[in-house]
Amino acid sequence: MHEADLNGTVRLIFQPAEEGHRGAKMMIDNGVLAGVRAIAGFHNMPNLPVGTLAMKSGPLMASNDNFDVTILGQGAHAAMPEASHDPIVTLGELISNLQTIRSRNIAPDAALVLTIAAVQAGTTFNVIPNTANLRGTIRTFNTANRDLAKVRFYDIVRATAKMNQQTATIDWDRGPSCVNNNAALTAVLSRVLKDDFDIVPAQLCNADDDFALYQECIPGFYGFLGSGGNGTLHQSNYRCDDAGLTYGARFHELAATALLKWVRA
């Protein structure tokens, strides 16, 4: 493709720090969307064959809220627990209690994941520590459920700590909303890409992507491009096929041309 063949301006975004909710926000704050009227992108998927593009309109990837909780107790000798307010006991109770957000506050047919992915407490076998910590994430596709989960999270953490004569601090990182594809733009791209890609329906994915922050500003499309490897995202055995790079370049070429026509229609 030659620049002279483009009926308008195409902006390629080379964004850092997608993990951690910082990259897209930083780019937007620095004006990357100034004058931009539509956007398209994709994430590689090793469980899809090279040449495959998974597409759907509407919600595609979940919102993301991360939490970091520190329980403040009172340490003591492990043989003298009566002198302590044991934060490890509270930590164990919280791990179970927080799962009731999903099981008892959210409708069974609604998607919401609450995962505690890291716990830290103590350094040796004979000392009850002063503090304990847990960290994790909440993913959902529904704004009301997202807000409810946060309210219940704070209630449960504070009440469980108080019940055990302790306190807790909560660091809440509100990430992007769910990736939500513009229906009209998705339909246009589906027609344009069908001759070069094996188009298949995309399944909802509980992973998040800060591409959603761009879609909060302008119409956008995000898909899953097959990279034909093994494992899945964030697994240690993840591998991809470099042949997928050709399809990635072709996607951007066709999408850029289609978006220029779409925004001028």
Rank of each mutant, 00 (worst) to 15 (best):
R146K: 14
T131Q: 13
D171T: 12
A132Y: 03
E82R: 03
F153Q: 02
I39Q: 06
F141G: 02
R104W: 10
P201T: 08
S96K: 01
E93P: 01
S84E: 01
P16S: 09
N145G: 12
A54H: 06
V263L: 06
E93S: 07
D195K: 13
T131I: 03
G20Y: 02
T143W: 01
R158T: 11
I71N: 08
L12I: 13
F211N: 01
R37F: 04
D86Q: 02
S84A: 15
D155S: 13
N30Y: 11
P87M: 09
D208P: 10
N30Q: 14
Q215N: 05
R146C: 06
Y154A: 14
V151Q: 13
A62D: 09
V36N: 05
T9A: 09
P87S: 11
P129A: 05
V119Q: 01
V113L: 14
A4Y: 02
N64T: 11
F67M: 10
A183G: 00
A34H: 12
V151T: 14
D198Q: 14
P219C: 08
A107E: 13
N7W: 00
A256G: 15
L225F: 03
A255M: 02
V188S: 10
W262L: 06
G41D: 06
Q99F: 07
A265P: 04
R158L: 04
F224S: 10
Q120N: 15
N164T: 05
K25H: 07
I218L: 08
D196A: 13
S190L: 00
